[in-house]
Design a binder for these strands. Structure first.
Lengths: 239, 239
DNA sequence: CGGCCTGTTGATGCGACTCAATTCAGGTGG
DNA sequence: CCACCTGAATTGAGTCGCATCAACAGGCCG
């Protein structure tokens, strides 16, 4: 981890403007926030923080990608969330005075802004808009977690994968239609951990979908050839 | 559902005082909150709100118990959370302008206070303390959801059950020691749904623990006879 | 080239769900 | 007060999904 120092406050501020969490926040407040944020960089594979460690603040990712994982003593891991540029992570750890509930690891070289807990909280009390945005952010995260719980508890791997593919397609293009393609964000092994399974099972499920003519697979690229069937699979129907 | 009307604002206020969400909130604000809260009662088995419906506000449970569930088309259900008196639910639905992410059902006759979304948000902007409390509440819920994800994704039923029993014991008495006993909060079928399994499997797991001398079971009452082994099971070790 | 990581494919075993039968407790009505 | 019904809990037998273990192919890099 590299602390690049207080540095160019102006640049930081400019970046903050485009982040959801700070939308609508007055310019003067952004100035303050940009000032208290600390630039931190992490090389690929670096641990940003570890589950159980005391939470000292939260992060805003400006470049790279991060995985938030829970891992079991015997080596298995479950990816709670994949974080991309412009997103924050470990926000919740700031409010319940506890420790980080999961481990964060850089998947590529990362550039982040770190917001120290105490100072951020002080500022938060003075900015209703920021508080409101933070509440909205946490709410969306909760929605995300709830969906994952639903998937894990009452759907099987194929349904979870189908659900994920539809989601990604929707995200890349605005719609879900035959012939649309997109890239998988990380390796298939990571995707497997994100879906609560392992590489082998994911591989089998993908090739089964391919053989049924539902999708095309080439390297990390997926093409959806039969959205209707994919939807059926996602909702748990047999195929 | 019965709307018992605006009624005794004084009584409501008195009740709010003891609720975590409102701790530290000035008396004047409590007055306003008590005024905008609507008393709603629900009989046993009633649906308080359904997944997917537009969220109009959140609830504070004053008496009874509620389950928040996700259910699949084929009848299976997963209990995300069991709510007791003094706790709020559906808070998150207020901030992401969306719909309820799960269904809420009264397990017994319930008395609630309902806070309409728009009015509550208006008030929230004016009360930093309330906003702060709400953030803390959501954070704790996220912690809870994260733990559940961890359990579901990388632990088996026996570990989840053991984890749950230890939690309950800790909650009832301050500690976890040999010989301590406590009641299960609901039926075993519900508990099974909460643990992400079904009644039969729970039954088998309990009786296996009993036969190993780890716990005693009589009706809805559990006595812990070997905390050490229970801890081992919870962490995923073989037994 | 040789090592390492990722991904694919096959064989096997285990955990947990399904289906079905039975018991038991609580509540209801004759 | 007892017969009856319903829902919860338990237990057994069978099946299935998926993890495990193992072997192997391809790409990347030192």
């Amino acid at each position: 981890m590299t602390d690049t120092g207080p540095g160019a406050t102006g640049q930081k501020k400019k970046f903050l403007k485009d982040v959801y969490l700070f939308s609508g926040v007055p310019d003067a407040d952004l100035e303050t926030l940009a000032h208290l944020a600390v630039s931190k960089a992490f090389p690929r594979q670096a641990t940003i923080f570890q589950e159980g460690r005391e939470a000292q603040g939260f992060y805003l990712l400006s470049r790279g990608s991060v995985k938030l994982v829970k891992s079991s003593p015997d080596g298995k891991e479950y990816i709670i969330r994949l974080v991309g540029p412009g997103e924050t992570f470990a926000e919740a750890a700031v409010f319940s005075d506890a420790s980080y509930p999961a481990t964060a690891m850089a998947l590529e070289d990362c550039q982040t802004l770190f917001f120290p807990k105490a100072q951020f909280l002080r500022h938060l009390a003075a900015s209703p808009t920021l508080a409101r945005n933070m509440l909205a952010t946490l709410s969306r995260l909760m929605l995300h977690l709830t969906r994952q719980l639903e998937d894990l508890s009452l759907k099987e791997v194929s349904a979870r994968l189908a659900h994920y593919l539809l989601e990604r397609c929707q995200e890349s293009h605005g719609t879900i239609e035959k012939g649309q393609a997109f890239e998988l964000p990380t390796t298939k092994t990571h995707l497997a951990a994100y879906l609560g399974t392992i590489g082998e099972t994911l591989s089998r499920t993908l090739s089964r979908m391919k053989s049924q003519g539902v999708i095309e697979v080439e390297k990390g690229r997926i093409t959806i050839t039969d959205p209707a069937v994919l939807r059926k699979i996602a909702s748990g129907e047999k195929w």
